[in-house]
């Protein structure tokens, strides 16, 4: 079994969000970078669990971006995985990156590909679905559980108003969310071992983007909280009904 885990680098949740260059670029000053939590806690850890159970599994990691991603890939390798690939691109277009990943999939013939359900900076959640179409592979979105079976995999996923458990053949792309696995912390042996694991830099073929980001903006600051006295909570309901008009 050959598995690929797609990871992205995102600002830590507590980072200050600001923009530069006339609000066309994210301001990276003093930003603490992390592996996107959905990619790390759910996608990567589930893949590692599968490898621990079936040691012959080959586990590859991939990320798309410049050399600044290498630290994140090494951290992911410290948790687990055999080799990492960095697709050398500055594109932010999901389709472009999906096309680059599809090229890697064609070359490596992965049977299972994991992504997180979305990156916490772009909030897109579209990469896995695009990759599944291009590879091609089955796509299971918003998965909360996955088990391998003799003829494919059994996955539980979120649907409108509930959950669905399904079986599908491989290859499959699985987008992972809470429930899939539990967060792990790399140990010293993993960190030392990760230093010598291969990290390949791939120069991708040119792909025309389908979208581009024109500008960023910050939301208008909140007007400030309107406090209601604890002695008159009924006043709050009146305000929600008459002023905010949400009741």
């Amino acid at each position: 079994m050959k598995i690929l885990v797609c990871i992205s680098r995102t600002p830590d949740t507590t980072s200050r969000i600001a923009f530069t260059d006339n609000s066309t670029r994210f301001d990276e000053t003093d930003v603490q970078w992390i592996i996107n939590p959905y990619d790390e806690w759910y996608a990567l850890v589930r893949a590692i669990e599968i490898k621990e159970k079936n040691p012959e599994t080959v586990l590859h990691l991939v990320s798309a971006g410049g050399p600044e991603l290498d630290a994140i890939l090494r951290k992911a390798l410290a948790l687990g995985g055999d080799e990492a690939f960095r697709i050398d691109t500055d594109s932010k277009d999901s389709y472009t990156i999906a096309a680059h990943l599809a090229a890697l999939c064609h070359q490596q013939q992965y049977q299972l590909i994991f992504t997180g359900k979305e990156a916490i900076d772009t909030n897109n959640g579209v990469l896995g679905g695009m990759l599944a179409e291009l590879y091609p592979a089955e796509y299971v979105s918003l998965a909360t559980q996955l088990e391998l079976s003799s003829d494919g995999c059994t996955v539980t996923r979120e649907i409108e108003g509930g959950e669905e458990t399904l079986t599908c053949p491989l290859p499959a792309v699985i987008s992972c969310q809470k429930g899939m696995a539990e967060q792990r912390i790399p140990n010293m042996r993993g960190i030392m071992g990760a230093r010598t694991k291969p990290l390949h830099v791939v120069t991708p073929e040119a792909v025309s983007p389908l979208t581009s980001i024109v500008q960023y903006e910050l939301p208008a600051p909140k007007a400030g909280v309107k406090l209601v006295s604890a002695d008159q909570p009924e006043e709050l309901i009146r305000l929600l009904h008459e002023e905010a008009k949400v009741l």
């Binding site: 389709y95 291009l134 918003l142 389908l210």
Partner: peptide
């Protein structure tokens, strides 16, 4: 919603349509 999350990305890639 969950249906769109399952379907829209693949449709985008199939049609070469920006999403």
């Amino acid at each position: 919603n969950p249906t769109a999350k399952a379907v829209a990305p693949g449709l985008s890639a199939k049609l070469g349509a920006g999403l």
